[in-house]
Amino acid sequence: MLDLVLALVVGVMLVAGGVFTFLAALGILRLPDVYTRMHAASKAGTVGSGLMLLAAGIHSLDIAIFTRALAGFVFFVLTAPVAAHLVAKAAHAAGYRLSRLAVMDDMRASRKHAAKKR
C-alpha cells in the first residue's frame, strides 16, 4: 500500500517535471525575443528539473539522499534567477533590443537620458 502511494507520488512528480521542462523548451522556441524566452527558461525550466530531482530523492527512501536532492533543488532555485539576470543585463548592455511587440523600455529611455546629460 505504502509502496503504491510512494510510486504514485514519484510518478506524478516525474511527469509534472517533464511537462514543465517540455513547456520551457517550447516557450524558448515560440516566444519572440531573448527576454521573453528567459521567462520560460528561468521559471518553468527550474521548476521542471527541480521537481524531477526531488522525485529521485523521494524514490531513494533515504533521508541523506533526500536532503541532498533538496539542497540541489534550493541551489537551482537560487542560481536560476541570477543566471537569467546576468544574461538579460549583458544582452541589454550589448544592445540587443526587445521585440517589436514591446510596449515600453524604461531602461533604454533612462540610458539615453543619461547619455544626453553627459
Binding site: 517550447l26 516566444l31 519572440p32 532555485v77 511587440l101 515600453m104 524604461d106
Partner: peptide, 26 residues
C-alpha cells in the same frame, strides 16, 4: 509564487495565439 509563475508561463506558452505586451519598467 514560484509554482504559480511556472504554471502561468506554461499556460501562456501552449496558447495558440500568445497575447504578449512585453516591456521593461522602472
Amino acid at each position: 509564487e514560484l509554482a504559480l509563475s511556472a504554471w502561468k508561463v506554461a499556460v501562456l506558452v501552449v496558447r495558440p495565439k500568445m497575447d504578449l505586451k512585453p516591456g521593461i519598467f522602472a
